[in-house]
């Protein structure tokens, strides 16, 4: 759990719970107990498999779904209070907009609802459209927009009014690789300017690349929550990459794990205390050490392992 001081908190979700009741009174618990604390000026990732409760949690925060229990705060204010949403920009998953509007008209509409002053609205809308690469499409009707263009527009409308907090639900969905890179850079820009980003995503590489902390939700509860480095770094192990040798020296081969050889480059991990000896052994064998760094699990592997262990516990 995060130890962020109260004044530094942008989003606080405590004990979120959501139970849906059918017409016949049958209950389904979509979110059991989720607590997330997001520090100001950071990018916080929310991960989880389909149906884990990520989107429901975000919707409860934004007032789109009524929580069964829990406390929700945005920039220190109760999220149920309407004025707290002045600080928030939201990109829904697969956003849809009235298709008869042009991009500029849509931005004017959402800008007016956000409370952007009328005299600066056009300028701000044009700037944001340019920022997401839609400057040339400002006067094009949305019915002619591709999926990726709608996604870009969704991001632009979420940034209207310069929100302190931006909640992005699958922002890279429907975007090509260039678009995905642009979104990553945009999130990093927002963070650099002090904006807090709460990111829900299935794209683990995206989360790993930009997030400071992540919360992993599974079956309606928080399965893990920490700084991304602490989650992924493997305690006591160091990764080594080397080239210029046909085979690993015997002394290295004896202690190396996860050995891989590709494109004349060896990659393996060794215990921290053996790093000096390993570097010397490679050097003695005529090889070149390319990199020595703390061993880091990929988020994908961590995520898969976490979910697998959760399934085993249930079984």
């Amino acid at each position: 759990m995060s130890q962020t001081a109260a004044g530094d908190v942008a989003i606080r979700i405590e004990g979120a719970r959501k139970v849906y009741r059918s017409f016949l009174g049958k209950e389904k618990e979509a979110v059991r107990d989720v607590s997330i604390t997001v520090a100001r000026g950071t990018i916080h990732g929310v991960l989880g498999p389909n149906g884990a409760g990520k989107t429901t949690t975000l919707k409860m925060l934004l007032g789109l779904v009524r929580p069964s229990a829990g406390r929700f705060e945005i920039m220190g204010a109760d999220a149920r209070v309407l004025s707290s949403r002045r600080h928030v920009g939201f990109l829904p998953e697969q956003p849809y907009f009235p298709v008869h509007l042009t991009a500029m008209q849509a931005m004017r509409f959402y800008g007016a609802l956000t409370g952007v002053p009328a005299d600066t609205l056009d300028e701000e809308a044009a700037t944001l459209l340019a920022r997401v690469g839609l400057a040339d499409a400002a006067r094009v009707e949305l019915r002619k927009f591709s999926r990726g263009m709608l996604q870009r527009l969704g991001i632009a409308q979420a940034l209207l009014g310069s929100p302190s907090v931006v909640v992005l639900d699958e922002p890279a969905s429907g975007l090509d690789p260039i678009g995905q890179r642009d979104v990553r850079n945009l999130m990093l820009d927002l963070r650099a300017n002090g904006t807090t980003v709460l990111l829900s995503s299935h794209q683990l590489s995206e989360v790993e690349a930009v997030c400071d902390r992540v919360t992993i939700i599974n079956r309606g509860v928080v399965a893990a929550e920490d700084h991304i480095d602490r989650l992924l770094n493997v305690e006591g192990k160091t990764s080594v990459r080397a080239r210029g040798i046909e085979a690993l020296p015997d002394a290295v081969a004896a202690i190396a794990d996860d050995v891989a050889f590709s494109g004349s480059v060896w990659a393996f991990s060794v215990p921290d205390e053996s790093v000096r000896a390993v570097v010397d052994a490679i050097d003695d064998a005529g090889g070149v050490v390319l990199a020595v760094q703390p061993k880091r699990e990929s988020l994908e592997d961590y995520f898969a392992r976490l979910l697998a262990s959760a399934s085993e516990e249930v079984a």
Binding site: L62, L82, R86, F90, P92, P95, F97, G115
Partner: peptide, 14 residues
């Protein structure tokens, strides 16, 4: 149904 309402009601609109 089309979820266009999300972008409206996530704003300071009751």
């Amino acid at each position: 149904e089309r979820r266009t309402v999300y972008a409206v009601l996530a704003r300071p609109v009751a």
